[in-house]
Simulated scan of single mutants.
Amino acid sequence: MSEKFKILIVEDEMLIGANISLQLNELGYEVTGIVPRGEEALQHIEKTTPDIMLLDINLKGDLDGIQTAIEMQKTHNIPIIYLTANTDEAHFNRAKETKPFGFISKPFKKLDLQRTIELTISQMDKKIRMHTDSESLSSNSFILSDSIFVRHLNSMVKVEIKDILYIEAERNYCRIFSSTKEYLVVLSLKEMDEKLPAKHFLRTHRSYIINLSQIKEIAATHVVIGNKALPVTKVQREELLKRIQAI
């Protein structure tokens, strides 16, 4: 594994969490944290975004695992693997709505954990390849002052800058969300940030670049674009307010 996948463990039984962490380290994964509450998990991913969340369904506190997943998915697209001791049909049906990549029943063996994570990574890679084949920027694509040319099937499609809502990092790629479609771009978010016209766009978070003209609402920790709340770091919020005033 050339690059360690980062995994967050959300488990309120700390002995179980510590045991999972040990197993993940032995398997070659990086554990970004072990947190016992959904609220803490949401705070954690704003500082360190994992590649995968191992999420106990029956968390104690104000948010159970499913509610935590729902809140997380408002701002992030992190694959979920649920951990559960016993889930009735009602909980299972609620959990399905969050589109998890897998379920692991407690108690589980190290091999169960290993295979479920490997299958999740395989699904993630397959999803990226599928999108890359259908909608991506080729190596000779280019960005103009008022538009981006995106490869779609066998042709290049012009996407107007004004129609772009925001851009989200997806490992070594980034996804452009326009007012009508999504496009997967074979560029890192850092590379995209360097190429985009600065007067229109601002990187507000390690995972997001926003189109300043598309902002509907500015809050203390996020902005609203379309129907999605996108996180803004404290430092970038100050820059955002300066840029908005200058428009």
Rank of each mutant, 00 (worst) to 15 (best):
I128T: 05
R129Q: 04
R129W: 03
M130K: 04
D133V: 05
S134V: 08
S136F: 04
L137G: 02
S138E: 05
S138C: 12
S141T: 02
S141V: 03
S141L: 00
F142K: 12
F142A: 06
F142M: 12
L144Y: 13
S145R: 13
D146E: 07
I148C: 03
I148R: 00
F149Q: 02
L153A: 07
L153F: 02
L153D: 07
L153H: 09
N154R: 14
S155Y: 09
M156N: 04
V157C: 15
V157R: 08
E160L: 14
I161N: 12
D163M: 03
D163R: 09
D163N: 09
D163Q: 05
I164T: 01
E168T: 10
R171G: 01
N172F: 05
R175V: 11
R175L: 15
I176Y: 00
I176W: 02
I176A: 00
F177N: 07
S178I: 00
S179N: 04
S179G: 06
E182P: 04
E182F: 03
E182V: 00
E182D: 04
Y183W: 07
Y183A: 03
L184N: 10
L184Y: 14
V186M: 11
L189V: 00
K190N: 14
K190G: 06
E191H: 09
D193L: 11
K195P: 10
K195F: 10
L196F: 12
L196D: 04
L196P: 05
P197G: 04
H200K: 11
H200T: 07
F201R: 13
F201K: 10
L202H: 04
T204K: 15
T204Q: 14
R206I: 01
S207G: 10
S207I: 01
Y208F: 09
N211E: 11
N211P: 06
N211T: 06
S213G: 06
Q214I: 11
Q214Y: 10
I215D: 13
K216L: 12
A219Q: 03
A219S: 13
A220H: 05
A220N: 12
A220C: 14
